[in-house]
Design a protein around this nucleic acid. Sequence first.
RNA 1: CGGAGCGUAGCACAGCCUGGUUAGUGCGCCUGUUUUGGGAACAGGAGGUCGAGUGUUCGAAUCACUCCGCUCCGACCA
Length: 570
Amino acid sequence: MRWSNTFIPTLKEAPAEAEIVSHQLLLRAGLVRKLAGGLYTFLPAGIRVLRKIERIVREEMDRAGALEVLMPAVQPPEIWQASGRYEQAADVLFKVSDSKGREWLLGPTHEEVITAMAANEINSYRQLPLNFYQIQTKFRDEIRPRFGLMRAREFIMKDAYSFDVSDEAALTSYQKMYDAYVRIFDRCGVKSYPVEADTGVMGGNHSHEFMVPAQTGESEVAYTEDGVYSANLEKAVSQGPETKTPDLCSGVLEEFETPGVKTIGDLESEPFSVPASSQIKTLVYIAQDKPVIALIRGDDEANEAKLAVAFGTAIFRPAEPAEIRKALGAMPGSLGAINAEGIPIYADRQLMGAAGMVTGANKDGYHLRNVNVDRDIKHASFKELRTVREGELSTEGQPIKIRRAIEVGHVFKLGTKYCESLEASFLDENGKNKAPVMGCYGLGVTRTLQAIIEYSHDDNGIIWPASVAPWQVCITALDVEPGGQVMKKALEIYSELSEGGYDVILDDRDLRPGFKFKDSELVGFPVRLSIGEKSLNQGNVEFTLRSSLQRESVSVDQAAAKVKTALADV
RNA sequence: CGGAGCGUAGCACAGCCUGGUUAGUGCGCCUGUUUUGGGAACAGGAGGUCGAGUGUUCGAAUCACUCCGCUCCGACCA
């Protein structure tokens, strides 16, 4: 490809709309342009990268035995109602209506569609296992699209769905996808880490997210240096806080006056001086229209994902002050779970056996001391509710660290939920009707593209790994006179490399050299050959590796060979 | 949806507070000359319903109100 024949509108300055570096570079390198918030056009260079990532994904899916299909993006709402997700996912569903006024959904994901298909087509255990995948545009009415392709309203995802005869067999399918993901991100040139992920209300204990470490990432990962433990912060557990929860107390439960005390901090300071670790934080939520109480140690933070698991629903919100008063008879600041009759109580495990604690008396301006959790708070079920903090010890005894990361993939062992609600079943070898055990596996293709940029760039621009670069080699001709010796030589090398199967772009634009160098570095071609009059007269061309930007003189005859060996390495 | 900020040429911004003739600057774009190994110089030029609407005023980019859009922080997710 000649640069003059394609369209790579580079920008010297970053548009103000782009905050993070990968988003700025997407725009500056002329890969994408925005139509509206969360909606992007891929320009020629951008689509080339996208296609290369897709090809890697396809190859690895095929290798893992998954079968490519293509499902409709437009879906009937009925299957979503059947699975129960029509309400559950309501806030991300794009709804459209046809000319007759009938409602349709733009697919945010395809569990319902594939399961509806499976319900018709899978009858026998002899057909299983099956794993279907597709690479397709998804639509999600994101509350807040941001960071360019990172969180878009329309994005490309590879989604796969496996069906197995049993739980054990499903684990095998799961593992194959897991391994495929490791290979995919590896081939895309990004470091990705599988971490244990929250399974939310779906239950089960097999889910991993694939994370690319980046400060701009939206997820937080807890991990240990030795690599043994890594989990999404939503899911992470530890041996607990460094300060032990008090568990010895002989005193009797006693009310005391605490005028004006509203927060943990208020009670911590004079004249009360109750350490936060000796306090019980009482949080009131409305889950499925009913109040529930969550108890957390005063110095801990509740974790929303863990609350969802405890409550058994993702649909909950903090209660309004009026609702709290109605439920407990007091305002926030004086709440407690003692004598909270008829309200489900979930207590964090740190409070198990806690004694000598202080909590609200459900009477404005009063607290209770000498609280012995086991004795005084009946009906509490103990759950993992707190957020792990940096420095705590993992179950294996290693200090936990926390860092931000971009979630580029998520693999999930689903169970039989969708097969049951959409009535997919098969006959096993004993002639018994069974629901297939499903797994689902998502990989954000467009997000991966941006994650690669976030992971691999410098002050000059993008540094593409050769496997996904829009062009692997840029030949920068410094004299573009047609028929001149520079262009003649440039075209010769161009042909040799192209015929060797390399993607080459020839910068034949009539621009000053510095401009062309900057441009090629911004777009980020892994290898550049600069051919100019001066060096050519000495029989040389200049070879530059994008990653190091070190320039090296190479004899003209060796140039193509040098490129080939360099590309084999990056 | 809650909080914060921003909409002026393709891009980055000034001007607005304190209303006043032809709305500016840099980059980019077009023409020409010179230049040509690290985002050139000079000369000339094109390009604006100042986000939209309403209002206040003799007069609005500037003040007020409403709406729309964009960005950031929070809840959601590949």
